[in-house]
Computed example of a mutant assay.
Amino acid sequence: MHLGEIISVIALFCGTVMGLGALFSPAWASKVVRLVEDPDPLRPGGYSEFRATYGGVFLFAHLITALLVLYLWDGEHQMTTALVVLPLAAGWIGAAIGRTMSLILDTRKNREPGMIPIWIPTELILGLAIGAPFLQFVLLTH
């Protein structure tokens, strides 16, 4: 297994753990992302969204990507591994870009920057770490 794949699998398991946490504790996910369920008593719920999006999607998208990287680790599939991680890596980098835009454009609506300055580099790091096989492939083959 190459260094890029090791870094990627570690980052992917971090995403898997976040998803598992949100799946079983939507209250925790709500606190992490600073969103709350709908306070309107006529529209109860919201936890299903935390379980589905921050739980199920995070858990299974990261887990299946990690399993694919581990399955393809033999060294003969470097290009395939590089492509497998790309969508999820791009998603994390896209999240950082969106959060950066919010930090710049939504100052009044955000009131305080809160965790935004912490999440931006975290999302960039996760995106780059997940995309490490792609970066390694591009740097070593060109």
Rank of each mutant, 00 (worst) to 15 (best):
G56W: 00
E49L: 06
F137P: 08
G131S: 11
P44I: 14
P44D: 13
A29C: 05
R99W: 09
W92F: 09
L83Q: 14
L83K: 12
F50Y: 10
M115T: 09
A89P: 03
P133Y: 07
T122G: 13
G114I: 10
A66K: 00
F58K: 00
S102L: 13
R111M: 07
H62P: 04
P26C: 15
L63M: 14
L139V: 06
M1F: 04
S102N: 06
T16C: 02
A27K: 15
V69H: 09
A61G: 13
R34E: 10
K31W: 06
T80K: 10
I118T: 11
A129T: 01
A27G: 02
I10D: 07
A90L: 15
K31V: 04
A66W: 00
L67N: 03
L3V: 14
F24K: 00
V33E: 14
G98L: 13
V69N: 01
W28P: 01
F137R: 10
F50E: 12
P133L: 11
G91M: 12
L103D: 03
M79S: 02
A129W: 01
D74T: 04
V32F: 11
L88G: 03
K31G: 04
H62F: 07
L135P: 06
A66C: 01
G21I: 07
I64F: 10
L35S: 03
G46V: 08
A89D: 03
E76T: 14
G45I: 01
V17W: 09
L128Y: 09
R43E: 08
E76C: 06
I130W: 11
P41F: 00
L86N: 10
V57I: 11
Y47K: 14
A27I: 07
H142V: 02
L72D: 04
M115G: 04
I6M: 12
W119A: 13
E37I: 12
V138I: 12
W92M: 07
K31I: 06
V17N: 02
L63F: 07
M79L: 10
L59F: 13
P26F: 13
P133H: 02
G98W: 07
L72R: 08
W73E: 03
F58T: 00
L103H: 05
F50H: 11
T16E: 01
G127E: 02
F58E: 06
G15R: 00
L35N: 01
T141V: 05
G114V: 13
G91R: 03
I116D: 13
S25Q: 08
V36F: 02
V17G: 01
L70S: 04
